[in-house]
Design a binder for these strands. Sequence first.
DNA 1: TTGTACGCGTTATCAG
DNA 2: CTGATAACGCGTACAA
Lengths: 332, 332
Amino acid sequence: MATIHDVARRARVSVMTVSRVLNKPDKVSAKTIKKVKRVMDELGYQPSQVARSLVKRRTNTIGIVMPDIKNTFFNSWFRSVEKYARLSGYTTLLCNTDEDPEDEMKLVKTFLAHRVDGILIVPHSEESVKYLMKAKVNTVLIDRVYEGIDIDFVATDHYEGAVRLTEYLIGSGHRKIGVLRGPGILFPDIERHRGFSDAMEKNKIEIFSRYVHNCEFMEDKAFETVTQLLQDGDPPTAIFSFNSLMTIGAIKAISSLGLRIPRDVSLVGYDEIPGNEIFTPGITHIKQPIEELGRNATKILIARIENPRQKLKQNIFLKPELVIRESCASVA
Amino acid sequence: MATIHDVARRARVSVMTVSRVLNKPDKVSAKTIKKVKRVMDELGYQPSQVARSLVKRRTNTIGIVMPDIKNTFFNSWFRSVEKYARLSGYTTLLCNTDEDPEDEMKLVKTFLAHRVDGILIVPHSEESVKYLMKAKVNTVLIDRVYEGIDIDFVATDHYEGAVRLTEYLIGSGHRKIGVLRGPGILFPDIERHRGFSDAMEKNKIEIFSRYVHNCEFMEDKAFETVTQLLQDGDPPTAIFSFNSLMTIGAIKAISSLGLRIPRDVSLVGYDEIPGNEIFTPGITHIKQPIEELGRNATKILIARIENPRQKLKQNIFLKPELVIRESCASVA
DNA sequence: TTGTACGCGTTATCAG
DNA sequence: CTGATAACGCGTACAA
């Protein structure tokens, strides 16, 4: 690939002039610009970002660490991030962790080695977040945040979403509510559970611990749990799932028992499952403002990259939306 | 961020020794290695890939250009690519084109500016492919390939998939088959249509042009078309959709007319629609070997990067799989 | 086993 | 408006 020297030689100007044509065209005569540009075209010249990065100490790249690109929620989010990043002149490095903390740590280090200007991360382990803070890298946390930590983050208000979904169930007359939750380590899980509990207490409804299960956010665990729950003597009349994978597991379990939603049991959950708009019954769910989540995160990160002295960290909670479909029955 | 000089100074060795600890540890005494490594840890030192890239003329990055990360087919594919790339020590730059040829061209140029070692592209325009060939960049085309062009590619055998799906319909007694296709520009579209036509001819079944429609691979166009088709005097008994978006459009149209699959009309299509495993009826479809598509493409690209003199290009067609579900009825 | 000098492709600085 | 020179952080060749 042609270098700036090739261009300079062929255009019979100095290397500096070529550089200026690219970066400070107003300091170069129109005639020279034209001549140089023609040569650049002839040679298919592209200025080397790597050389440029070395001297400018900026790579114009953003590293993105996420747990699973196959998850609809995350890939939609990435799509919006990539769009805004590109509009601002940044290219995105993307890696999957598959929820593996070791991979996550390695990836973070790889990104630092590539000298990305900033990192957007949907973290799994607190360790990598701490590492990033210590290394003083521009970082924005997404979705899974740690409160009381001095770092930018953008997330949905998981607590409020859970409250609204729970109150919706209660409003439909449900008292016995099964909960499919995670292990209680990640922020969204904790917050959603807190929202559920508070809503139940506020309405003076007893929470039975036998209805609340840790399904690790996984489809097969949810399948087992729901199969159990519904075969027990006193089954819940409604099930609240904390993510879309577990919702799918629940649907499969219900259907394999020969039961129907919402006739035999109601089902609501966090996030929309794929295909929800085509099939019946549509599942009532909490919709997170994904596009906004991406736009805000990118904007905050780029602002910090371009203005590093700004000390105050931004902590943004976006409002979730309750989308009512046909998966919840009224009970007496 | 600490540089190799900082490490050298603090460890009281020369810069070269530090470099060797990283790249040729066998040429350094165990004691020195230990000392240097400790300092690297203390400083959180990560060798600069950008400086390293400049001298090695290799960035250890792969650029990926794809039309839409939200499409299940593409994001599953990316997931597999990223995995294999990472295992081989490469980091991925990912950008979305949203099927915009101008964006695609810009992205390709951006990647070249970043001096990626190679490019994986699901191309929309032939222009960007030609540009890459002229620039002699290591490139592997995915899914949408141009035959008779001297470049590596990996794709599914679209022709055979269409033949099998069509023969399956014919075997179930269908004669009047509606086809939702694209504009006839992209390779998969052309090949699938050729497969459909050949299968019909081979079985001596007349193809009615009023049953074959260009829906631009878009959901809403498919919706309109299917609505029309089924309201006409002599509607098809089965519909063959060329991608999952159009399949979704067809499902919505059928359901909005109050009809049922497969009782009133059969529906089959290329690629699995999201949620297909949970809902009834499952749609009979052609499944592409996505994981293999990613693994092969990545392997070929990396082989070419690491062994550029290999002249012969690899053109790989993978076999698709027919997945039979419940969306196709037998007719007399 | 360890160190010195140079170059990778670009921009900043200073001089003309 | 244009050009010469140094520097960015690292690896290679050669020397010690």
